[in-house]
Design a binder for these strands. Structure first.
Length: 590
RNA sequence: GGUUCCGUAGCUCAGUUGGAUAGAGCAACAGCCUUCUAAGCUGUAGGUCGAGCGUUCGAACCGCUCCGGAAUCACCA
């Protein structure tokens, strides 16, 4: 039982004892910091039961609680709000619990298996800023769900087949001149991306030429030789043409090497990777089953559709007229395979909100095919990352590349640390490690502190801040705490805090610490790392204020000093574990 | 046009199921290092919570209408 529930149950008991109301609505919230007290009971809903005014009702309940509940020490009434203060001893006991709980913040096993899909890259171009948000979110949500006690499977789905892959393959075949990552020194995903752009360039030129020759533009888009060749390549691929297959494997291999480096740099990982090329056939067979069952229908041209108009949606294509599969086809297959393999309780797709419609349809189709587990699919629909001028557009060269972004952040962190003289005593290896930690910390925190559902803005011209509500601010607070603890250990001061009672400022810190498990739970329920980010920022801010106002090592009372060290240590520990849920490492010094 | 989402300080964002005088950071201005890390701390200034109506003892939050923005409604993924 958490503290809020404790206060709530005692308040309910008071209401029953005083007014005889059994199931009155007892509303407990944290007391706002401008008022005295720890928890506040809002008495307005209780006025009917009490038959008195707000002040009298609040005073009566407050009096009863102080008289009958040892932990509740004092109360005050402001309008209809009853502010309750818990005793120092109560908070000291809570702190002792935290200090002895090695798993503080992590919940007991729930018995549920949750699969989280994230990343899901296409193998025709390198990762960009949008993917960065996806990867950081997915990884963090998975860690948070683990902390909530679930068994979590992080899975990736590589979109390694399809017309878009054939485009870069074709362009490389036509214009590549045998270039490889080794021959060019380019990262494989970037090299392949270059040919995807190359395809588009030539395709556009062909369309232009056809239109100039008098063809309708839509027709030109369909008839341009580049697109016809790409479509032919996809058919040959689905027929497992050895030449096309070999080319496909070769170029995808380059991309995987590149992705691996980017994933490593971001610090994300997966328990299992699915490939669309290995699930689309299963998807096709599901379409056949659905056809046989009358859930889907075939048009005269041979294409297969599902009619969702009765559900307020449209008709949706499941197989093209030439028999090749589309996105939905393989997603059906992938979902099936996953359920067969893991029997998950929940499946969470971390995918951008531009695909809301797709997932609505996916769930509906899986339901129509008779799968009860379709109800346990959640689309964690996150907002786009926008630039000041709007969406990233590859045509206008405004795409923020993930590798460049990460390297830039680390370089900025290095410069700044140097400028501040923070690296003076560090070896080059230590300096690199710190710069990496701080640069990545700034980037990750910047992205994760925003509510996932919301569109967020990133201005590449202004570097991400290192002061204020930022990752480095929190990392700094941790480094500061570790520094004090190091000095304490070096001088061998007593760590016996027996007899020390917390000051009001210390109670505030303890209160914030006790909130951590609840925040983790809420973050898990809402799939929102932002809740953890905002929590740990508040904690760091609170600690910095405390640190400023109270000296620790210079405190002369040994027990008080020891208590402050304990409080600092636990704060540092919670900062580290909250940041770990965000995938952000915290340094010992910076 | 249909569906979904969003609109809070100059900028970027918080605001937990409806609760007290709507909060941070950045930017601006004024202070604080002979003292445990100043990537810090304190203060000043900055708001018609897009607009209106309604429900309620009480609305940034719930409902309706409008305004503005985004996504989507592809034989792309």
């Amino acid at each position: 039982m958490n503290i809020e529930q404790f206060v709530e149950s005692k308040s309910a008991a008071a209401v029953e004892a005083l007014f005889g109301a059994r199931d009155a609505v007892v509303q407990i919230q944290k007391t706002r910091k401008e008022f005295a007290g720890d928890y506040t009971l809002v008495v307005f809903p209780l006025l009917k039961a009490s038959g008195r005014g707000p002040e009298q009702t609040a005073a009566a309940i407050g009096g009863w609680l102080v008289a009958n509940v040892a932990e509740i020490e004092a109360f005050n009434v402001v309008k209809g709000f009853l502010n309750l203060s818990l005793s120092e001893a109560f908070w000291a006991a809570r702190f002792a619990e935290i200090a002895t709980d090695a798993n503080f913040g992590h919940h007991a096993p729930s018995g549920r298996t949750v699969m989280v899909e994230y990343s899901s890259p296409n193998t025709n171009k390198p990762l960009h800023l949008g993917h960065v948000r996806n990867n950081l979110l997915g990884w963090s949500v998975a860690e948070i769900l683990k902390a909530c006690g679930h068994k979590v499977l992080k899975v990736n789905l590589v979109n390694d087949r399809g017309i878009h892959i054939c485009k870069s393959m074709l362009a490389w075949q036509l214009f590549g001149g045998g270039e490889t990552p080794a021959s060019t020194g380019m990262k494989g995903d970037h090299l392949v991306g270059k040919y995807y752009v190359e395809f588009d360039k030539h395709y556009k030129a062909e369309i232009k030429e056809l239109v100039a020759g008098g063809m309708d533009e839509e027709e030109a888009k369909r008839q341009a030789p580049m697109i016809l060749q790409a479509q032919e390549m996809l058919r040959r691929w689905e027929q497992k043409d050895p030449e096309i297959y070999a080319l496909w494997e070769r170029m995808n291999g380059w991309v995987y090497d590149g992705f691996e480096k980017t994933y490593a740099a971001m610090g994300v990982d997966f328990d299992r990777t699915y490939y669309e090329s290995q699930t689309y056939l299963l998807g096709k067979s599901l379409v056949d089953k659905g056809l046989a069952a009358g859930v889907f229908f075939r048009r005269d041209d041979g294409s297969v559709w599902v009619d969702l108009e009765a559900d307020g949606l449209d008709q949706k294509l499941l197989l093209r007229s030439d028999g090749t599969s589309v996105y939905m086809t393989q997603d059906l297959g992938t979902a099936y395979q996953r359920y067969e393999e893991y029997r998950f309780d929940d499946l969470i797709y971390v995918v951008g909100n531009e695909q809301n419609y797709h997932f609505q349809v996916l769930k509906l189709i899986l339901s129509k095919l008779g799968n009860a587990w379709a109800d346990h699919i959640t689309h964690l629909s996150y907002g786009m990352v926008e630039l000041p001028e709007g969406k990233m557009k590859s045509r206008e060269g405004t795409v923020v590349d993930a590798d460049d972004l990460i390297a830039g952040m680390v370089a900025t962190a290095h410069d700044m640390s140097q400028e501040l003289g923070k690296l003076d005593d560090a070896t080059p290896e230590q300096a690199d490690a710190i710069s990496r930690m701080v640069g990545l910390g700034a980037l990750k925190y910047f992205i994760l502190k925003v509510d996932p559902r919301k569109t967020m803005l990133f201005d590449p011209r202004e570097s991400i801040d290192f002061n204020g509500n930022t990752g480095p601010f929190i990392q700094y607070t941790h480094a500061r705490i570790r520094s004090v603890l190091r000095k304490a250990a070096e001088t061998g001061v007593s760590r016996d805090a027996t007899g020390a009672t917390p000051l009001p400022a210390e109670v505030e810190l303890i209160k914030q610490l006790t909130d951590f498990p609840g925040v983790v739970a809420a973050a898990g329920e809402n799939f929102s790392p932002a809740l953890v980010a905002n929590y740990v920022y508040e904690l760091a801010k609170l600690y910095n204020g405390y640190y400023h106002d109270h000296s620790i090592l210079r405190e002369e009372n040994a027990a008080v000093r020891a208590f402050r060290l304990d409080l600092s240590e636990q704060t540092g520990r919670v900062i580290a574990s909250a940041m770990a849920l965000l995938g952000i490492a915290v340094p010992e010094r910076m």
